[in-house]
């Protein structure tokens, strides 16, 4: 049973901007990642799902209801976190949470209080005086206070510190257990990696691929910076037959895709003074996934 269905969705803003023939579906209870660099069309797609804009072509539905015409009905069971949060700046944090709860016809603030505790949020004071992270937390409280069945989250953990990012991931995993359908957009691979079952990758407004996490993880390449005790050892290691990115005096950069055991076994033979992991950027991931440049058409 598909909860979210996007069919040939097209919105052309001209000069290559927009989204083109995006088709995907998200199953009930699935956590679906939507990965792409800035400006790839993630937010445009979500705007369609929220019914903010009219498609040039194609359609999208949530729970079988058309996103543009039935948005009020969809919103009864939906939680939405915008990518760029803007509140009524003249309100106080707690007043705003109460206001949104009333607008959503939620009388019981138990869930909101739970979340404020989890996120260590103290929503006193005016919204306009709050930091980006504080606002993000208030946004998250507003998303979850109605116990939604479907979540649309546009770059949800931006602005949160690492501790809170972990709390957020726990929150998503708890929702996943409850059977909530989650559509999560991000330009950070790690955010998607820890929570999603499947992910779509969008580039230049076009859907590049939809893949399950295992496949994506396997194709993900990590670069290890290994520092040896002497230059000679480094030169010897370089001949072990790994894919080398660079060799500088006693430091070797090795790229490994998938299984790391062979590398660990090989390293055992040498005296190593330092080991660093360089994680891939999203662009490098794309490069790897397609074996093509970022500007090449997939």
């Amino acid at each position: 049973m598909s909860e979210i269905v996007i069919n040939n969705l097209t919105k052309n803003y001209g000069s290559g901007k927009g989204i083109f023939d995006v088709t995907l579906s998200v199953k009930k209870g699935e956590v679906f990642g939507f990965l792409g660099p800035n400006g790839a069309g993630k937010t445009t797609t979500i705007r369609h799902l929220m019914g903010f804009i009219n498609a040039d072509k194609g359609s999208c539905t949530i729970g079988g209801l058309d996103c543009r015409t039935k948005s009020a009905e969809i919103q009864k069971t939906l939680g939405y976190l915008p990518g760029e949060i803007a509140f009524m700046d003249d309100m106080k944090g707690m007043d705003f949470i109460r206001f949104i709860a009333k607008m959503k016809d939620v009388a019981d603030l138990t869930r909101a209080n739970e979340l404020m505790e989890l996120l260590e949020l103290n929503p006193q004071g005016l919204l306009k005086k709050m930091s980006k992270g504080m606002k993000q937390k208030i946004g998250l409280v507003c998303v979850f206070l109605s116990n939604p069945k479907v979540l649309l989250l546009d770059e949800p953990s931006s602005g949160l510190d690492p501790l809170m990012q972990n709390r957020f991931i726990e929150l998503i995993l708890a929702e996943k257990k409850k059977g909530t359908t989650i559509f999560l957009s991000s330009h950070i691979f790690e955010e998607i990696e820890r929570t999603c079952d499947r992910t779509a990758i969008i580039r230049n407004g076009k859907l590049a691929t939809i893949t399950d996490m295992q496949t994506l993880r396997a194709s993900k390449q990590k670069t290890y910076l290994i520092t040896f005790e002497t230059d000679e050892q480094a030169t010897a290691f370089a001949k072990e037959g790994f894919k080398l990115s660079s060799v500088t005096s006693n430091t070797v950069a090795v790229s490994v895709k998938g299984d790391v055991m062979p590398l660990i076994n090989a390293m055992n033979k040498y005296k190593i003074t330092a080991l660093d992991v360089k994680t891939q950027t999203l662009e490098e991931l794309f490069l790897n996934f397609y074996g093509k440049g970022e500007n090449g058409n997939a």
Partner: peptide, 20 residues
Amino acid sequence: RYVDRGSMACLLATPNKRSK
């Protein structure tokens, strides 16, 4: 002002029709 600043999204992310 709500549209310009983006806070209209908060109002529309509730079960209220645009017309309402």
